[in-house]
Write a protein that binds this DNA or RNA. Structure first.
Length: 431
RNA sequence: GUGGGCGUAGCUCAAUGGUAGAGCACUGGACUGUGGCUCCAGCUGUUGAGGGUUCGAGCCCCUUCGUCCACCCCA
């Protein structure tokens, strides 16, 4: 009985065509992260359970992959890249701060798979550790905008808000702390659901409908011109978090974020529990796949591992969704239909001539593929044709005798004979 | 965690409850120094798994697994 080949639920293989796209994306991320001075970091797939738990809320923990290893230790697969980073900061105190790192690795969530959602998926994070400066927050937004622009996205919107402000606002309206959590969840939904449905859900959750209506009214008032709305509020006494939010907005603009790509949205809440003040989220208008980038300031996360209080800010790119969106919008670079050089093996007498040519080309930095099996020329051509090579090189007995090589152009069905010694020049000139 | 659609050859899919099929792909040949086109031949199955109903199940029922989608939540 043969073993049925299959992949574990929610996990995927990436075949070469897809890997080429993914590698392209990763290289773009790296390039821009490094341009802004971020340094690379990797952490293990697994952490001890106590490291992982306690920061994602009960819903998050249901999605955690945790189990015992052979020695009975409680371990889990990492759920995001932020918590391992907090551990790193507490563990390696010699790291110079502010520490700017980037990290591109898979994370794991025991979720039910569906469109664009998997149990293993890549996240791509940058964080700045050890500064409270809002310039750091703004830098994250600038990276976000640079990357999306560089990748070719035109219609994206970064929405920003401050949880401190939102919190104060909710208290002023009259909500209790436990109600606030429910309200924040509902606000996250506001964009997707009709207002009737939202009201119904608020009622169902037992929220004071007068308070809730006040909130919704206030938020919709702010929508048209949030900046002057905030300034009016500031004059009337509510000040918590407003300055930070306005600063972030203006710093981001100075750092090159285009005005049409950024908006203060006072209803933005964000799910993760560990954000403490400024938060942001980016969505692309087309295709509508929700948020593709999210982040914020989380000043208390490192405290779990250390006596020190260390302010942190970061942004996480939804690698899989960006990949999906880029495919939809055809933003990946197109490959030439025919490319590359393929070297045939005529027979065992000419074998070493072919091998030598492959060696010479590769030594000169010209990529080429050498046929590996003993098959008829016809089969070798069929292979070359299916793999869409542009050039096929043939060294048969005639060519060995005359010191020449046949170069066949599969795309144009033409061929020519050149001196073996000028093969390298031929291909260098072609480039 | 909850709900729905779908599981048949490597892939895409057919088959009124009555003999499991086609196209593509693959292997070889026509064509012993040349791919795509054509023609010929060949290969391919516990119909996801287990149970039940029936004279008879790919088809109906139950269970289970997988997959896709939606909700919850999130990237």
């Amino acid at each position: 009985m043969k073993i049925v080949p299959r992949t574990v639920k929610g996990m995927r293989d990436f075949l070469p065509d897809e890997m080429r796209n993914r590698n392209y994306l990763i290289s773009k991320f790296r390039e821009i992260f490094e341009k802004f001075g971020f340094e690379p970091l990797e952490t293990p797939v697994m952490e001890y359970s106590d490291i992982l738990t306690g920061k994602y809320g009960t819903d998050g923990e249901k999605l955690m992959y945790n189990f015992k290893d052979r020695a009975g230790r409680d371990v889990g697969l990492k759920y995001d890249l932020t918590v391992p980073l907090a551990r790193i900061i507490a563990q390696y105190t010699q790291i110079i701060k502010p520490f700017k790192r980037y990290q591109i690795q898979p994370v794991y969530r025991y979720d039910n798979p569906q469109k664009g959602r998997y149990r293993e998926f890549y996240q791509c994070d940058i964080d700045i550790i050890g500064t409270s400066s809002i310039m750091a927050d703004a830098e994250c937004l600038s990276v976000c905008s640079s990357i999306l622009t560089e990748l070719g996205f035109k219609n994206f919107l970064i929405r920003i808000n401050n949880r401190i402000f939102l919190n104060t606002l909710l208290s002023d309206i009259g909500f209790t702390d436990s109600e606030k959590i429910i309200v924040l969840r509902l606000l996250d939904k506001k964009k997707k659901v009709s207002s009737e449905k939202l009201d119904a859900e608020a009622l169902e959750k037992g929220l004071n409908s007068e308070y809730f209506n006040n909130l919704i009214t206030l938020l919709s008032e702010s929508e048209a011109d949030p900046v002057s709305f905030l300034e009016r509020l500031r004059e009337s006494g509510t000040t918590d978090g407003i300055k930070a939010l306005l600063d972030l907005y203006s710093f981001a603009i100075s750092l090159g974020v285009q005005e049409q790509n950024i908006k203060i949205d006072l209803s933005l809440a964000r799910g993760l529990d560990y954000y403490t003040s400024l938060v942001w989220e980016t969505e692309i208008v087309e295709p509508a796949i929700g948020s593709i980038v999210g982040g914020g300031r989380y000043d208390t996360l490192v405290e779990r591992f250390s006596k020190e209080k260390i302010p942190c800010v970061g942004i996480s790119f939804g690698f899989e969704r960006i990949c999906f969106a880029m495919k939809e919008l055809s933003l990946f670079p197109k490959r030439k239909e025919y490319s590359g050089i393929f070297i045939t093996i005529f027979n065992k007498d000419t074998l070493h001539e072919s091998i030598y040519i492959a060696y010479e080309l590769r030594k000169s930095g010209i990529p080429c593929e050498l046929y590996l099996d003993k098959k008829k020329l016809k089969q070798q051509f069929k292979y070359a044709s299916r793999k869409k090579f542009k050039w096929v090189i043939i060294i048969g007995p005639d060519e060995v005798a005359s010191g020449k090589a046949v170069i066949r152009d599969l795309e144009n069905s033409s061929e020519e004979k050149v001196d073996q010694s000028s093969l390298i020049d031929f291909f260098i000139n072609y480039k």
